[in-house]
């Protein structure tokens, strides 16, 4: 294995050959920064949209429920790479001329980041929607009745009774989705956004040390996701209910 390959872990500290004042590790860190910005922004959108759509799907109003169902149908069923191309290449053409022109004059990296954040956020939002919906539907039907019977309005019933418990039910699968956002963010490399995996690829082109490059990138992805898991576990423990779902 690797018989004729000459390993060189020192490659990361060499200055880059483009003349920029940084080394190859600097490129990877810049990629990591983009990955984190992209994934966290997309997570916020995914959570906000997912909660709203998940709630809509469980309301008694069938038009609102249909709106949520349509959203999930569109964003969950189209491959994420196709959605990304649509956001980046097609949407700016469909915008009114002045808006489209304005968008195209933004720095390229801003255009890519915006498209990628919207794409990933709305795609993951459809998945979060389903988690929130199933979280709400897991609760006994009587919970809603009891909240309404006390005189709470339907929005209050969601706010004070249904969602606080549904969120707790949804934390473990939401952790998985959070990890998925970080992993799926690599798809943004296809439109040219220099996130972690794209920088790793660039390192291969410039240094001819593919194994070191991807080994480090892989380790960084694992590290990020271990951190995500640890944080989410902390959240899970801190909202645990005595005698209920996972509590003692």
């Amino acid at each position: 294995m690797f018989k004729n390959y000459s390993w060189d872990w020192g490659v990361f500290l060499q200055p880059v050959s483009t003349g920029e004042p940084t080394n190859y590790l600097g490129w990877l860190l810049a990629g990591l920064y983009n990955t984190v910005v992209l994934a966290l922004s997309a997570s916020l959108i995914a959570f906000a949209v997912g909660v709203v759509m998940g709630v809509l799907r469980t309301t008694p109003n069938r038009w609102l429920a249909a709106l949520g169902t349509t959203y999930v149908g569109i964003f969950r069923n189209i491959p994420v790479i196709v959605q990304l191309f649509a956001w980046y290449f097609v949407l700016p053409e469909l915008l009114p001329d002045n808006v489209g022109t304005w968008f195209k004059q933004l720095p390229a990296s801003t255009q890519m980041m915006t498209s990628a954040v919207l794409c990933l956020g709305l795609y993951m939002g459809a998945r979060v929607c389903e988690l929130i919906r199933s979280g709400i539907e897991t609760l006994p039907k009587g919970q809603r009745s009891a909240a309404l019977a006390l005189g709470l309005t339907l929005p209050q019933a969601y706010r004070y009774v249904l969602l606080p418990v549904a969120f707790r039910v949804a934390i473990p699968p939401l952790t998985s989705e959070m990890i998925n956002v970080f992993k799926n963010s690599a798809v943004a490399s296809t439109i040219g956004l220099l996130e972690l995996s794209a920088q790793a690829q660039q390192l291969v082109d410039y240094t001819a040390h593919p194994y070191e490059s991807f080994a480090v990138a892989t380790a960084v992805y694992i590290l990020i996701n271990v951190i995500v898991v640890l944080i989410m576990r902390q959240v899970e423990v801190s909202v645990r209910l005595p005698g209920y779902i996972g509590g003692k």
Binding site: G142, Q143, A146, A147, L148, P164, R168, L241, Y244
Partner: peptide
């Protein structure tokens, strides 16, 4: 408002677990 004046007790208690 009307419901707030009518107390209701359910078969499965339906206390809010959180």
């Amino acid at each position: 408002q009307l419901r707030s004046k009518v107390g209701m007790v359910f078969q499965n208690f339906e206390l809010f677990p959180h």
